[in-house]
Computed example of a mutant assay.
Amino acid sequence: MTSDGWQLTEDIDDFLARAGDFLRSRPALHNTPLTDLEKLRLGAPGTQGDQAAAFGRLESAGEVHAVFYLTRRGRLGLTRLSAHRTNRLAARLAALGHRPAHVIADRATATAFAEAWQRHTGATAAPFWRTHLYRLGTLTPPRPGPAGRGRPAGPDDREQVVRWCREFCVDVGEQASVDLIDAGAWADSRFGDRHFTFWESPDGAPVSMAAGTSLVGGMIRIDPVYTPAQLRGRGYAGAVTAAAGRAALAAGATEVVLFTDPANPTSNALYQRLGFVQVDDFAGYRFS
């Protein structure tokens, strides 16, 4: 046992054997670590060369209270920590010579780590992501809904999916994802492992799409949801999100979650009408 309680390793299998139950105990709050760690464990496309520099679990009396993971590309993920423990983790990582490029966590933890990292290293921290986390309570499809039906996207829909994912990234300012898609590195993008659902009009034309992550820890995250600009305002986003939610439940998910932009009251209200309930706020900070 170390003086600060953190147990560090570079062995993901050993880490998950010891910390997996903790991560699965709160799959909604831990949705990002669950999906990130599963991709690292499987060596999924886009993770080659991005193996973890360190995995850590905060443990006392045989019980895990928090975890972090830091990839070689500098992605630091944290579960909820007190400000005091966050400060001690920042000091530990700095002393070991680790240099995260950014941190993502619940807003309180991410903010506390960014402030602690500045104190210990002098690095500048700049916010780049803020979001609400919602989990699905009782799915309530829109009534009345738009004409048409939901259906899973298949291999023949690949070109449509790629084009709409690019348009989505342009809309939300995710230039790094646009660059990967434009370079033909679809598998390396954050969409390469998604399962897509279309809402199609009665004539069979796709008009909106939503996607879900693979099932891990009983959880599926819906991301992204996209409707082309010229087709918005017709109820398609609500219909396709409900269809993706049904698909997630049918796949065995006990928790279905999604992130929303706090600055978009329309989408937040829509997801609440569908039965999603806000759980927490999350944030990300980049470091110089």
Rank of each mutant, 00 (worst) to 15 (best):
D4S: 11
D4W: 08
G5D: 01
E10C: 12
I12G: 12
D13E: 15
D13W: 07
D14M: 07
D21E: 15
R24N: 15
N31A: 07
L34G: 04
L34H: 04
T35V: 11
D36Q: 13
D36R: 10
L37D: 03
K39Q: 12
R41D: 09
G43A: 11
A44P: 01
A44M: 09
P45F: 06
D50R: 15
A54C: 14
F55L: 11
E59M: 11
H65P: 01
F68I: 04
L70R: 00
L70I: 00
R73A: 13
G74D: 07
R75Q: 13
L78Q: 02
T79G: 03
R80Q: 12
R80N: 11
R80F: 07
H84N: 13
R85P: 00
R85S: 09
N87V: 04
A94E: 13
V103R: 00
A105S: 12
R107W: 02
R107G: 10
A108W: 07
T109P: 03
T111G: 14
A112G: 09
F113E: 02
E115T: 15
Q118G: 14
R119K: 11
H120Q: 14
H120P: 04
T121V: 07
G122K: 02
T124F: 10
T124P: 03
A125S: 14
P127S: 08
P127Q: 08
P127L: 05
W129K: 12
R130C: 10
T131A: 15
H132Y: 13
H132K: 12
L133W: 08
R135I: 03
G137F: 03
L139I: 09
L139Y: 06
L139D: 11
G145A: 15
G145I: 03
P146M: 08
A147M: 06
R149T: 11
R149M: 09
A153V: 06
V162S: 06
W164C: 04
W164K: 00
E167S: 15
E167I: 08
C169N: 14
V172Y: 03
E174K: 04
D179N: 12
L180C: 10
I181N: 04
A183V: 08
A185G: 03
W186P: 01
F191D: 04
F198C: 03
E200W: 11
S201V: 00
D203K: 02
D203F: 00
A205N: 13
S208I: 08
M209K: 02
S214E: 13
G218M: 06
M219D: 13
I220G: 01
R221Q: 15
R221N: 15
I222V: 14
P224A: 06
V225C: 12
Y226D: 09
P228A: 06
A229T: 11
A229K: 08
R232L: 10
Y236G: 03
A243C: 09
A244F: 00
A248D: 01
L249V: 10
A253Y: 05
V256S: 00
F259H: 12
P262G: 08
S267Q: 07
S267A: 15
N268G: 11
N268E: 09
A269C: 10
Q272W: 08
Q272G: 12
G275Q: 08
V277R: 13
Q278Y: 06
V279P: 00
D280C: 13
A283P: 05
G284K: 10
